[in-house]
Amino acid sequence: MAWQQLTIATTQELAATIEGLLENLGALSVTITDRADQPIYEPPLNSTPLWQHVSITGLFDEQDDLKNIEQFFNQQLGHQGEWQLTIERLEDQVWERVWLENFQPIKFGDNFWVCSTEHDIADSNATLLRLDPGLAFGTGTHPTTALCLDWLAKHDLTKSNIIDFGCGSGILAIAGLLLGAKSAIGIDIDPQALIATTSNAEQNNVLDKVKVYAADQYPRKPQAIVIANILAEPLISLSSDISALVKPKGHLLLSGILSEQVTQVISAYQHEFIFCPATIRDNWACLHAVKKT
């Protein structure tokens, strides 16, 4: 089955009006995205910030008649502001499969690779992590995850037990196991993340070494390596809980931090940890610290 996608390039001021018009026209879904690469990081709680320039997309059934749609919007909006409408036909596809086919393998360290379930690496000696993120965050392409993978690939993880706090797709926990760790625990508030972590662990033949827990159910037993790739605000607010999971002389890896947030995050942990210099990539930072005895 094919679909029709109606996209309107507009501004923040008209966004709510256009969203309502699309819903009234019977759009199956309405999506608002950034049109000018204006990132919004960690908005305040209970707020719904919106970009200044947006694209609003309505998805319609193939059978819907959209011939007079531009005339309709002209009548409804008149000269209220800036907007431009386009309509395109979308052939039905299994979109997650399309993503997997286009996801190119990424190398970390000397010979550790993250690739989709659709790809292979020619080097028979390579260590491969095959990934299908499902609906959870974590593919290795974003700097926050890549920085953590770099760290894991360059350190001796032999016999270590790992906690992946905010596990997403499970990529960091599974990477640690493939690189020599003894066991891993994945913790997340999102049930989809626990499903994705379990599925990816099975795909990589490490399911017997992984346990997953909802954020209100995980065991409070300290381990040698704790990774928390989330965002600065929860890293700070949860600093006591995360710190308690690290053994004395154990390693703490914090990521999902903007470079300008590094000082704030360090200050929340420095009474218990000794920090190495931050590693920065594309304005994102990763912090490595060792817990004091």
Rank of each mutant, 00 (worst) to 15 (best):
K107G: 03
K67S: 13
F60A: 05
G58D: 06
F112N: 05
P49H: 03
L59C: 03
S47E: 14
P43A: 05
W95F: 06
F103L: 12
F60I: 03
P105N: 13
G78V: 01
L90I: 14
Q80V: 06
Q38P: 01
N68D: 13
Y41Q: 12
Q52H: 11
W95N: 06
E62V: 04
G78F: 03
P49Y: 02
L50D: 01
F73L: 15
H53I: 07
C115P: 00
I87H: 11
G81W: 09
D64W: 08
Q104P: 05
R97K: 15
F73E: 00
I56A: 03
D110I: 09
L50C: 04
T86Y: 07
F112I: 10
L59N: 06
F60P: 01
F60T: 01
Q38I: 00
D64K: 14
Q75S: 12
Y41I: 06
E88R: 12
L77Y: 00
R97G: 02
T57P: 08
F60N: 00
P44F: 04
V114Q: 02
Q80A: 14
W83F: 03
D110K: 15
N68L: 11
G109P: 07
P105M: 09
V94M: 10
S47N: 04
L90F: 14
L100H: 05
V114T: 05
P39S: 06
W83Q: 02
I56Q: 03
H53T: 07
G78K: 04
E101I: 06
G78E: 00
G58P: 01
P49M: 10
D65Q: 07
I87E: 08
R97F: 05
Q93C: 03
Q93L: 07
F72L: 15
I106H: 07
Q75V: 01
E82L: 10
N74W: 01
W95K: 14
E88L: 11
Q71I: 13
G109N: 08
V54Q: 01
E88F: 08
D64N: 09
V54G: 03
L50H: 02
F103C: 12
N102S: 10
E82F: 10
L50I: 15
H79W: 05
R97T: 15
F108W: 04
E62C: 02
D64T: 12
L90Q: 11
G78H: 03
D65L: 04
K67I: 09
N68H: 13
W99H: 08
D110N: 15
Q93P: 00
G58R: 03
T57E: 11
I69S: 01
W83G: 00
F72W: 06
G109M: 02
I56D: 00
Q80F: 03
N46C: 05
I106A: 08
E88P: 06
G78L: 06
P44E: 15
